[in-house]
Design a protein around this nucleic acid. Structure first.
Lengths: 194, 194
DNA sequence: TTCTTTGCTTGACATTGTGTCAAGTGTATC
DNA sequence: GATACACTTGACACAATGTCAAGCAAAGAA
């Protein structure tokens, strides 16, 4: 019964995800995760090498479950490049709250751990590539502001849509989710469109 | 000789600052700081309650030494609101690299420690107020884009100028310092000016 | 049914870094 | 010479990660 192993693994991943979101990525111990998953602390170490390894695996797991790629599908199907930009901001902007806790946890260890950094970058590269594609589309439709190169506009778009900016506007400035999406859309349109 | 006490205190603060910048705020232990300051580890605890207390004190110290307020003086003296915006972005943008290491360290503990959060917010409120003032000036000069309220534009300006955005553009996107200042200026002008 | 393997448990232990405590040292000052 | 002060020294408590070895219970093979 090798499915038992997989089941336990999934239980641990689910518990990790849940706790990370509950506590916004802060102060979640290995023993908390084990308890929440209904297994011993050591069982966690039988499935994952270390805390960082577990977090990376959880990131991958969450990514599969939530399916950002599929959500971004509708962006590719957009009738125009400008509409694609709008949809992109909306889809990603509404995705952030779902992954916020885990993101925070990953970002916190990113600086001290090479593997975590890689995991985060991998996750982000999806967004970065999407940003580049959008900008490329805008450029081909001749609506990209002439003051930017494709690369610069892509970097800016990607940076503006960072989890940290979302966090700052929502948490520190008290913006609502709709305010965020609307505001970001207006701001980005103003800065990179002609 | 109460000046000896102050001297030791300063030595510790200087050592903390130096190590934080050297290691970009990561993996700096109390014993490292003590050794670098040339005092015993316990001496550090005689001057500062805890690690977080020390970091907050260092933040204050650095703030005094570098004098952001004075640097921002030239912004107030600007001949026009639009020029003030330009100068603001330049002064702050060039200030970031000087406080980057310490900022990272402070941001890292911000989520787990109330006192650190307060210290950071206090430091940021200076920038936030400046952002508000700039926007207010732009509004009075009738050059603020009509799509924003004063508050929203202030929040956006402040968010765009975050240390994290600087970090992402410089470290992840490989922008140079000049590219950052120029890019930010163009982007912000495009988004909040008429 | 018995034997073995597999997945997990249990409890002990090493390690690292923070923070505390108490006794001791050296040195200006009265 | 006595005193107070700033710091040192070394031991300790504590929390969290990660390791190790022995054991247990159930599934599958003989």
């Amino acid at each position: 019964m090798s499915s038992k192993e997989a089941k336990t693994r999934t239980k641990i991943l689910e518990a990790t995800w849940k706790l990370m979101e509950q506590n916004q990525g802060q102060g979640v111990r290995m023993s908390d995760i084990a308890k929440s998953a209904g297994v011993s602390r050591q069982a966690v170490y039988l499935h994952f090498e270390s805390r960082v390894d577990l977090m990376n695996a959880t990131t991958k797991y969450v990514d599969e479950v939530l399916g950002l790629d599929e959500r971004l599908q509708c962006v590719s199907d957009a009738p125009s490049a400008t509409k694609a930009l709008e949809l992109f901001i909306e889809v990603w902007g509404n995705y952030i709250p779902e992954i916020y806790g885990l993101s925070k946890a990953l970002l916190a260890v990113r600086d001290t751990d090479e593997a975590a950094s890689k995991a985060w970058d991998e996750c982000m590269s999806c967004l970065r590539n999407a940003s580049r594609d959008i900008v490329e589309g805008l450029n081909q439709s001749k609506v990209l502001s002439s003051q930017w190169t494709n690369d610069a506009a892509g970097d800016l778009l990607w940076t503006m849509l960072s989890v940290q900016n979302w966090e700052q506007l929502i948490n520190d400035c008290g913006w609502s989710q709709t305010q965020y999406v609307d505001g970001m859309t207006k701001m980005i349109q103003a800065s990179i469109l002609d």
